[in-house]
Design a protein around this nucleic acid. Structure first.
Lengths: 119, 119
DNA sequence: CTTGAACCTGACATCGGTGTCAGCTTCTAC
DNA sequence: GTAGAAGCTGACACCGATGTCAGGTTCAAG
């Protein structure tokens, strides 16, 4: 599919999709004229990329991580190197802390919301 | 206490503390010579501010929110306006989604980590 | 062939918390 | 009073994903 359709179907801007491709997160064939042609699987992949961005990972890390992830077709196409493994473990710790933090913040917001609007 | 001690005790840089004060998140008296003098309660407040930043709130929102929060002394000193209330409710929704997302990402990382290092 | 929608590249801007540096002042302990 | 640590202000830089614009090309339908 073309970039416009992919953008529509994922809710991600064309700008971002081009950026993802330039960062090596997303592969696209090209038509004779140079237009990007994305495979169907790109939809899932873009969603995943967004999730990883939302979790605070940067594109370099995502690029290394993606091939190690299980995709819709089945098994991963690569295995994490020790270096990547260490990085991911660190990310995991960070995410854990963040989750804890978010729960606390959510509770705090709830308190304030309830005090004001819960009536 | 002075800014250096507050920085040490909270693990937040002096630069950031000055920024917090400039944004109205943190109150400080001044010595005759112009040095900031923070109350003991500033330690807790800084920790809270960091949590809110980590949760993705921006300083403007935090500034409005802080007075509505219950602090160590007891009740809040202000109540959320309808405007703030709407904003906070939105933040809450966002945070909820983020938490969900983070769980999924964490599981993904676990899978990759286990596949590589779990052995 | 023509036309309008869709796409291309490249460049520059933005946001906001934080790092850092310069140049100067204040504080504190001797 | 003096020295050195600590503090002050103001300015500039950075990061990194995304927005946006310009100027040109390609695609598809008539």
């Amino acid at each position: 599919m073309r970039i416009g359709e992919l953008a529509r179907r994922t809710g991600v801007s064309e700008r971002s999709l081009r950026y993802y491709e330039s960062r090596g997160l997303l592969a696209a064939d090209r038509t004779a004229g140079g237009h990007r042609e994305f495979p169907e699987a790109a939809v899932d992949r873009v969603v995943r990329i967004q999730e990883l961005y939302a979790a605070g990972l940067h594109s370099d890390r995502i690029r290394h991580l993606l091939p190690c992830m299980r995709d819709q077709d089945g098994g991963p196409s690569a295995q994490a190197t020790p270096r990547l493994l260490a990085d991911l473990t660190e990310e995991r710790t960070r995410i854990d802390r963040l989750i804890t933090d978010l729960h606390r913040t959510r509770d705090t917001l709830d308190e304030v919301i309830e005090a004001a609007g819960g009536e």
